[in-house]
Amino acid sequence: MIPYINEYDTPECKNLAETAKKSIRTPASLGLDRCIQCGACTASCPAARFTDYSPRQIVKKVLENDRGILKSEMIWSCFYCYSCNVRCPRNNSPVTIVQVLRQMAINEGIGVERLGYFVEIGEYLAVNGASKVPSAGVKNMERDLGERWIKFKKNLESIRVELDLSSKDIRNIHGEVQAILEGTGYFEREKWIKERIQEKHLRHLLKNQCVNKEDTNGEFVFENDREHTGQPAFII
């Protein structure tokens, strides 16, 4: 199955640099070609201080059209603080380039398992028209925010009544959000992503039983899976 690829986000171009520049995420003033490899971005990057991530190297690899970068761990360290863009003397933006690279990786099924955590948000959005903290993260929130927050959450309805507010009902009852997601192909992509995640999960389980190789960097282990045949194919 061919995933829904957003032509505005990751247009098909002859090299990575063209895709990054043509992507709707990046402004026309993006200085990608003008990078002088000065390293101001990396020196400013909080992720670079604690991991191997180097925004400068990302830009270098994009300019060199090194598609191996899509399979690399590096592109998943950025958390969009934009310090790189603030300090870049050539008005470059490794943060937006990394976003495009991530989408390109997902399109090839690489790194989909990282989206597992966030899928819940999309589901919730479709029904209620609002976002939520995924259940996997709620435990962390409880721990970080403490007893008071838990109590507040438990008694939210009665507190609302006390404050003279209407009952909490955030469902998007007219279904506009759902319609938008449907019309923009979101559900197609969500379905595809879920299938890929499931596939990977299964393969991981099976792999532990039948294959010796280490699954590194989110690479496909089975060659057949390169073509999207519509059904997850695993060889037992």
Binding site: C38, G39, A40, T42, A43, S54, Q57, S83, R87
Partner: peptide, 26 residues
């Protein structure tokens, strides 16, 4: 490399944070 920022220590001396792009190390 182009330094990102300078930080001051209590004794008024400074730290310059920079990526050495030839060593590829911060």
């Amino acid at each position: 490399g182009r330094p990102a920022e300078i930080v001051e220590k209590p004794d008024k001396s400074l730290i310059v944070r920079i990526e050495d792009t030839l060593d590829q190390k911060i």
